[in-house]
Computed example of a mutant assay.
Amino acid sequence: MPSIFSLIQNENMKIYRRIGTWVMIGLLALATLAGALITKATHKEPENWRAEVASEIKGIEAQLSEGKMSKMYKNHLEQQLKINEYRLEHNIKPVASNSFWGHLVNSADIIALITLFTIIVAAGSVASEFSWGTIKLLLIRPVSRTKILLSKYIAALLFALCMLLFLLVFSAIVGAVIFGIENIHEPYLAYQNGMVVEKNMLFHVMQVYAFNCADLVMMTTFAFMISTVFRNQSLAIGLATFTMFAGSQITMLLAMKFEWAKYLLFANTHLSQYIDGVPPVEGMTMSFSILVLLVYFIVFCSFTWFIFNKRDVAA
């Protein structure tokens, strides 16, 4: 009986034998390089960064003096104020976009492209077996349906992981070549326990990447579920893609009026909002968002497993 590892290996071979997979990798590299070149051409280093930070401090103080804001946004401004004051006091420049670390942090935005590519892979993982008529060949093997389904899902996540590693390494190479590594020892300033602390920039970059993976995992799982339930790759890709792009905007509009919006999926997928942003609904915490995501994840996976195991998929 084939092991789960051999099944995963077989699914990986299916993924990387496709020309489309290598086209995705090429597009990812092109997007990373293009982003760096555009930043290099358009972004200019400020002549006096201390003056800009001082101006930003005055702007924050003016906002705080108005007093018409939520408690969470006020706390956010107060944290930014203390970080900026720490910069001036210890002569630590803000991380510029046209720098090695700035490029690495900005490259995390390209994870949205990886999410789109992984949706395509996950959507076709099960649905394509039906369209090609190979699902019966899988099911007559002495392997449980659970193992078959799990191997396909893990293979899709491994594809996403490989793309993430490629993005990180390639972005580091491009950043070093185009922007240089003169400021590689710059620290990242974070606000913790009521004080400003200096952290390793590499740790911050890894943290940003990790937080962006929440949306990646959830949308991959969602696309995989739609693919399994409806056996239609186009529907899975279309619905997951639409949800990915429109979900956040719809959630933000609802969050402006309804507190229950905090239980929606896209109110919780952007975990980076707890580092350098403000949650859409006051009172939300990192622990709350992780718990909500875990509930959605369990629901998606359970429904996918139930449908695949109970339905006569060979028919």
Rank of each mutant, 00 (worst) to 15 (best):
K14E: 06
R17I: 05
R17G: 15
R18I: 09
I19W: 15
G26N: 06
L28K: 10
A29F: 12
T42S: 13
R50G: 12
E56I: 06
G59Q: 12
G59T: 10
Q63H: 03
M69D: 05
E78W: 05
E78N: 03
E85L: 07
E89K: 14
E89S: 12
V95H: 08
F100Y: 15
G102Q: 07
A112G: 14
T115L: 08
L116R: 13
I119T: 07
G124V: 11
G124W: 05
L137V: 10
I140C: 06
R145D: 03
I148S: 03
K152W: 02
Y153W: 14
I154W: 05
L158K: 04
F159R: 11
L161E: 13
F166I: 11
L168I: 10
L168Q: 08
F170Q: 14
G180T: 09
I181L: 07
I181R: 11
I181Q: 13
H185L: 04
E186L: 14
P187H: 09
Y188I: 08
N193R: 04
G194T: 09
E198P: 01
H204E: 15
V205K: 01
V205R: 01
M206F: 14
C213R: 04
C213A: 12
A214P: 02
L216M: 09
M219I: 07
T220H: 07
V229Q: 00
L235D: 02
G238H: 01
T243Q: 02
F245T: 04
A246F: 03
G247Y: 00
L253K: 07
F266S: 01
F266T: 04
M286G: 10
S287I: 10
F288R: 09
I290E: 03
V292A: 04
V292W: 07
V295K: 05
F303M: 13
N309A: 09
A314Q: 14
